[in-house]
Amino acid sequence: MEIKILGAGCAKCKTLEKLANTVVKETGVNASVTSVEDIVEIMSYNVMMTPALVIDDKVVFKGRLPTKDEITNLITK
């Protein structure tokens, strides 16, 4: 599974990245977490509000910080 965090270095984006990493570790799901800071690439996902969470090239959250439970649900599905 490929998890991407979209966001050009704002505070919430960093929190989301940490959160995603924690969830991946705790659930033991085989997934890579990368953070995308390039604005051109961010825009290719048609996201207007950062941070956004992308799982396997699909935007699942944008413009807000999801809770840990929400992320866990999404990646263990």
């Binding site: 966001g7 050009a8 270095g9 704002c10 505070a11 919430k12 984006c13 604005i39 961010i42 825009m43 996201v47 207007m48 509000m49 950062t50 413009g63």
Partner: peptide, 8 residues
Amino acid sequence: FCSCSSIP
């Protein structure tokens, strides 16, 4: 929205 969102 946070100012870092203004570009997107």
